[in-house]
Computed example of a mutant assay.
Amino acid sequence: MRHDLRRPETAKTKADLDKNDSGLYEAIKRHMELEKQKFPLRINRQTVIYVAREKCTKEYAKWYLENRMNVRKDERGCV
């Protein structure tokens, strides 16, 4: 007796990753245009954020590290 190993036609198939949804391409394109206006700012050795040109300073990096990432140094310079 031989069993039929084919999947039934009603079985779910994976989505095709080569094709995007109708509005996804346009959303990606708009986001890429916004990112072109920003510049990389290194916060620490493993963190880089994209900011406007006016905020691309060491003072903003220090503020971001203390306020957004909650990393504060004591009077000895230790974290």
Rank of each mutant, 00 (worst) to 15 (best):
Y64P: 02
R42T: 15
L41S: 06
T57S: 09
C56R: 15
A27M: 07
K36W: 00
E54Y: 00
P40H: 12
W63T: 11
L24Q: 11
K38P: 00
N20E: 15
Y64D: 01
L17W: 05
E35C: 14
L24C: 08
E54H: 03
L17F: 02
L17R: 09
I49G: 02
L65D: 00
N20D: 15
M32D: 15
I49E: 02
I43Q: 02
N67K: 14
N44S: 12
H31Y: 05
S22L: 03
W63Y: 13
A61H: 07
E33D: 13
T13Q: 07
E26H: 08
T47D: 03
Q37L: 07
N44A: 03
A61E: 02
K58T: 11
A61C: 10
Q46K: 15
L17H: 04
N44W: 09
Q46F: 13
I43P: 03
K62G: 08
V51G: 10
A15L: 06
E59V: 00
R30W: 05
S22K: 13
N67C: 11
N67G: 10
E26G: 07
L65Q: 07
K29Y: 04
A15K: 14
K55H: 12
K58N: 14
V48Y: 08
C56N: 15
I43V: 11
N20R: 05
L34W: 01
L41C: 10
K29G: 02
R42V: 11
K12Q: 12
K36R: 10
A27C: 07
E35Q: 14
A27K: 08
F39T: 11
